[in-house]
Design a protein around this nucleic acid. Sequence first.
DNA 1: ACTCAGGTATTAC
DNA 2: GTAATACCTGAG
Length: 288
Amino acid sequence: MKEQEYKIENIESFELADIFDCGQCFRWNKQEDGSYTGVFKGNVMNVQKQGNTVTFKGICNGNIQEIVEDYFDLKRDYEEIKSKLEKIDENVKTSIQYGKGIRILNQDLWEMIISYIISANNNIPRIKGIIERISKSYGKEIEFRGEKYYTFPSLEELKDVTVEDYRKLGAGFRDIRLYETVHMILDKKVDLDEMQKNPNTMEVREQLLTLSGVGPKVADCILLFSTLKRFEVFPIDVWVRRVMNELYIKNEDETKVNKKDIEKLAQEKFGNLAGIAQQYLFYWKREA
DNA sequence: ACTCAGGTATTAC
DNA sequence: GTAATACCTGAG
């Protein structure tokens, strides 16, 4: 396949580090020249930003402009979202200034389910390593600039993978959860196409929670970071708990902060933009 | 040696 | 319902 290129000039709310290091994705890696290369939805792409111009180059399974506009959520007005959120309080404003170039990617639903199951009680380098090895073992090879990349395997490509196979790839105790979830989806116990069409977020959330290895935090990450794209959910991990406690709840022991209280507070403060507010806060608190 | 990391499932009150 | 506890793995 041939490499395509697409350029955008004078783009707003688009910073490579903010997008790729804010914790939403696992398959983008920084290159020596400061650009990022990643694999998504069967494409391999390199993204570079110079001045106010972003250049996308890659091996794509369709029109690169359409692929980019969809994946990078370019049709959404992040300037408007940020100006709404900034009005909430100084803390949120500070976090937005820190992560001003964040965009929430439209990532593949199936890939996010598997990726976030792997993320449980794990650290980012390991999560990335496990996903990489699964892709290399069962995905399709794509060559880009003389190097080999591997697509994230489809449901079909994982159908014969055993619990032991996942363990060998380093998944640890998550091996059985991966196996069970793959087979629940294969058996249509959970229908991803139906889920994608269902506008009722709570219904979709309930369905996700039936999957093995998917609890409240993982379900919310899937809802927020996949093509399901629900900005009203508020994934609560240790970092979000920490920042919400520091800024608003001010309990001396953050581990004792009730999840329900955080959820309620997030809903009151951020409403249907809770998810993206969470992302600014999370990125700010974790990196800064 | 020991703790910790994007939680979840299981078991026990 | 809600609170403890175990859990692969490898880096620091």
